[in-house]
C-alpha cells in the first residue's frame, strides 16, 4: 500500500506532530520505502496463527488493593512546564 502525502498529513495530526513542508515531502518518500519493505510480511502464511503481543506468556499478575503514599503535590507538579500551586495549566481545553 503506497503512502500518500494525504496519509502523512492525516497521521501527523493523529500523532500530534507539526511537520514542515519539506518534512512532509521527505517523510512521504521515506515512510513509503519502509512500508514497501514491511509489505513483504503479506507473503507469510499466518492462517490460524495466534498474535503474539508479549514476549513472555505470563497472565494474571495483580497487586493488592492497598493505598500507598502519593507524591507530594509540589513534587508531582515540579516537572510541569506551566502550573499554579494546585494544578497543571494548559491553553483552554474548550474553544480557542
Amino acid at each position: 500500500m503506497a503512502i500518500t502525502r494525504a496519509d502523512v498529513e492525516k497521521v501527523s495530526l493523529l500523532a500530534r506532530l507539526q511537520l514542515s513542508e519539506t518534512e512532509i515531502e521527505t517523510l512521504t518518500v521515506e515512510l513509503g520505502k519502509i512500508v514497501a519493505y514491511v509489505d513483504q510480511l503479506s507473503e507469510v502464511d499466518t492462517d490460524g496463527v495466534a498474535p503474539m503481543a508479549h514476549a513472555v506468556e505470563v497472565s494474571n499478575v495483580f497487586a493488592s488493593d492497598e493505598v500507598k503514599t502519593s507524591l507530594p503535590r509540589e513534587q508531582a507538579l515540579a516537572n510541569a512546564p506551566s502550573h499554579n500551586p494546585r494544578g497543571y495549566l494548559v491553553p483552554p481545553v474548550l474553544g480557542g
Binding site: I3, K10, V11, V38, L41, V44, T46, V49, A50, P51
Partner: peptide, 20 residues
C-alpha cells in the same frame, strides 16, 4: 500509521502473527 484505521490488520496484527 500502522495502528490507524484500515491498516491495523495488514500491519500490526500481521506482524504479531509473524512474531509468533
Amino acid at each position: 500509521y500502522a495502528l490507524s484505521a484500515g491498516y491495523y490488520d495488514a500491519y500490526y496484527l500481521k506482524a504479531l502473527k509473524v512474531r509468533r
